[in-house]
Amino acid sequence: MDVRRLKVNELREELQRRGLDTRGLKAELAERLQAALEAEEP
């Protein structure tokens, strides 16, 4: 998933699904989601 191409509301939805903080600027949201995705990979 390319988090840079997601819209802010899409980033927030993905973060919320993972129980993560949904507050912040788009860059912060993308960074948070990217870190979560990398942590999920085996």
Rank of each mutant, 00 (worst) to 15 (best):
V3Y: 09
R12H: 11
V8Y: 15
T22G: 11
Q16S: 11
E40A: 09
R32I: 00
L37K: 06
A36V: 11
L11H: 00
R32L: 00
L33Y: 14
T22S: 14
E10T: 05
P42E: 12
A27H: 15
E41Q: 11
T22I: 07
A30P: 03
A35Q: 13
V3E: 11
K7R: 07
R5W: 03
L37A: 05
L37E: 08
E31A: 13
E13K: 07
R23Y: 14
L15H: 03
M1D: 00
P42Q: 10
E14M: 06
R18E: 03
E28L: 02
E28W: 00
A35K: 13
R23C: 13
Q34F: 09
K26I: 03
A35T: 12
D2L: 03
R4W: 14
E14L: 07
R23L: 08
A35M: 11
M1R: 00
D21I: 04
E28R: 04
L6N: 04
Q16E: 14
M1G: 00
L6A: 03
R5I: 11
R18S: 01
A27K: 12
R5L: 07
R18T: 01
R32G: 02
R32W: 00
R17V: 10
Q34Y: 03
A36P: 03
D2P: 00
R18W: 01
D2W: 03
R23K: 15
L33M: 08
K26P: 13
D21C: 05
E14H: 04
N9R: 10
E28H: 01
L25R: 14
V8H: 06
E41F: 06
Q16N: 15
L37T: 06
K7C: 07
L37S: 05
G19H: 04
E13H: 14
Q34I: 07
A36K: 10
E41R: 11
A30N: 08
E10M: 13
Q34L: 07
T22K: 06
D21H: 01
D21Y: 01
T22A: 13
R32Y: 00
E28D: 11
R32Q: 03
A36L: 04
R12V: 15
E28G: 04
R18V: 02
R17K: 15
R18D: 02
Q16W: 07
E41K: 13
K7A: 09
E10A: 05
L29T: 04
L37R: 07
P42W: 04
E10C: 02
R32E: 02
E38K: 15
E14C: 06
Q34H: 07
E38G: 09
L33E: 04
L25C: 13
A35E: 11
L20D: 07
R18N: 01
L6T: 01
R32H: 00
L6K: 04
D2V: 05
N9Q: 12
V3I: 14
R12E: 12
E10G: 02
L37N: 01
E13S: 06
E41T: 10
L37M: 03
L20E: 08
M1I: 05
L29A: 05
N9H: 10
D2G: 04
E40M: 10
R32A: 03
R4G: 10
R32K: 07
G24S: 01
E14F: 02
V3T: 14
R12G: 03
R23I: 06
G24Q: 00
L29R: 03
L25V: 14
L25P: 15
K26Q: 14
E41L: 10
E10S: 06
